[in-house]
Amino acid sequence: MTVIPVAEVALPAEVAALRHLESSTVERLRHEALTVPRNWVTEYGDYQNGGWHTLSLMNDTGDPRDVTIRDCPRPRPTALLERMPAMQELLAGLGVRCMWARLARLDHGAFLWEHRDYGELDEVERHRLHVPVVTNPSAYLVVGGTKVHMSVGRVWRLTPTSPHGVCNRFGPSRIHLIIDCYADAAFHDLNQGDAAAAGDAARMPEPSQSVLDETVTTATGLAELGYDHAAETALLELFYQYALAEGRAYDLIADMYAGLHRDDDAERWRSKKNVMLGLA
């Protein structure tokens, strides 16, 4: 395995570490998150490899299993949130105008592939808040070639209209409270960035040509044996190891299939790149 040097850096503009949370609050949130939710929903299958599950806490139907995000100006608590008093207290305390709130569980080995969010919603300004409840060092967000480990004990802001991806390479499961909210005075009060803890952000290295060649060779070997999914995964994972240009991982997959004279598969991945990155 190649040693990949990373350099600690300031947080990218798309991410901010906001308010600190009391450790007792975090402990109550963690207890609830690990004991109350059941029957997690796996949604957005094209965007992930199967290990990302959610349940809604605030939406317009009150159904925790209704997890497909849409504009939702008047959300109400779901049956799940009614059984989670610490979550209720936190949501009320943040004071922001919530569009949707959900718990997201990212299992070991799970990836949300490089994508942009909010593409399907209208132009109303929105922001996404993350409250990490359970995490580990191998769970991180990648945006603009920088990996950000959202540590527990803070409220974080993510602007998801930039290409980003999330992974939990080795586990245990990561659980975040994710709140999509409208921009208003309460949000702007909350959105006062502070320095992240040391180690929370690191710039990833540019990939050398030999690294790209070696990975493509391995992926091609997998595809030639019929392990297409593993081949695609090996190339998509480059986004989490190296600072790649936008959509480069998708291009590498399309090129791999083109090299194998599998033109339909190459075209499928070119189209998928456009959908994932909102370029269509």
Binding site: M1, G109, R169, F170, L222, L225, Y227, H229, A230, A234
Partner: peptide, 23 residues
């Protein structure tokens, strides 16, 4: 004939599909 190619991809296969934490 595929034994060599299989050995060359075994680590990546186990990592990508089953989440092996180590080679």
């Amino acid at each position: 004939p595929s034994f060599g190619p299989f050995i060359r991809i075994i680590d990546t296969l186990m990592s990508a599909e089953l989440g092996a934490i180590l080679p």
